[in-house]
Structures are given as structure tokens and as C-alpha cells.
């Protein structure tokens, strides 16, 4: 099983997904992220999905779940770098990713998170 690394940069946890997400790696990521949030007390989570070309409803729900978990630790989640095709797919699936903020790229995502804190 491939693992997604979680990087801590200041008060923010940075997750860049660069693998084809399998269901078990997704669950592992949720667990790791929850552990990390508890351990570091980070205020924001930045998830970069620039490299993700295919999403399904499961991954869509995973992103929402991560948003909900983070909120329990008083951290905000920002999703960055979504490809147009992925956005269209998610819309067609009827997923609007409530509770997760989005930004065009990592830079704007960081601005969003830092503007809050």
C-alpha cells in the first residue's frame, strides 16, 4: 500500500497527493492526518490534488470527511489544484464538497489559510 506523506510547514499540514488513490491508502491518509492534527495542533490543512486525474464518489467523500475531521481539531481544510476535468466529474456526481474550501493553486491556498490565522 502506498502512503501519502504529510508535511508540517509552520502551522499548516501540507498533503500532496501524487499517487492513484486506492481505498486503503485513503483510509490510511485519514488516520495519519487525524494523528498528525492531534499531535501538532496545526490550524490548517492544505491538500494538493494537482496530480490527481481521476476521482470517484468515494474519494469525493473522503475529501469531505477530511474536512470534517480537521474541523474537529479547529483546523481549516483547503483543497488546491483541482483539474477542470475532475471538477466537472465531481459536479456531475453531484458532490460539491461542503465544508472544504478550494483555491486555484497552493499559493492561493496558503494565502487563504494564513489570512484566517
Amino acid at each position: 500500500m502506498e502512503r501519502v506523506p504529510i508535511l508540517k510547514i509552520g502551522e499548516i499540514l501540507f498533503v500532496s497527493i501524487q499517487i492513484d488513490l486506492q481505498d486503503d491508502s485513503v483510509i490510511r491518509l485519514q488516520e495519519d492526518l487525524a494523528d498528525e492534527l492531534g499531535a501538532t495542533g496545526a490550524h490548517g490543512v492544505l491538500i494538493d490534488i494537482t496530480a490527481v486525474e481521476i476521482v470517484d464518489s468515494f474519494i469525493g467523500r473522503m475529501l469531505t470527511t477530511i474536512g470534517s475531521i480537521s474541523r474537529l481539531f479547529d483546523a481549516e481544510t483547503v483543497l488546491v489544484g483541482m483539474r477542470p476535468a475532475v471538477a466537472i466529474t465531481l459536479t456531475e456526481l453531484g458532490l460539491s464538497l461542503g465544508g472544504v474550501r478550494t483555491a486555484l493553486n497552493a499559493e492561493k491556498g496558503l494565502e487563504l489559510l494564513n489570512g484566517k490565522s
Partner: peptide, 12 residues
Amino acid sequence: LKTVSAARLLGA
């Protein structure tokens, strides 16, 4: 509405 929510997913 679809177009708007797709744009929102990109952060716009």
C-alpha cells in the same frame, strides 16, 4: 448551477 459549482471546486 453546475458550471458555478465546478468553478467553485477550483476555488473561483
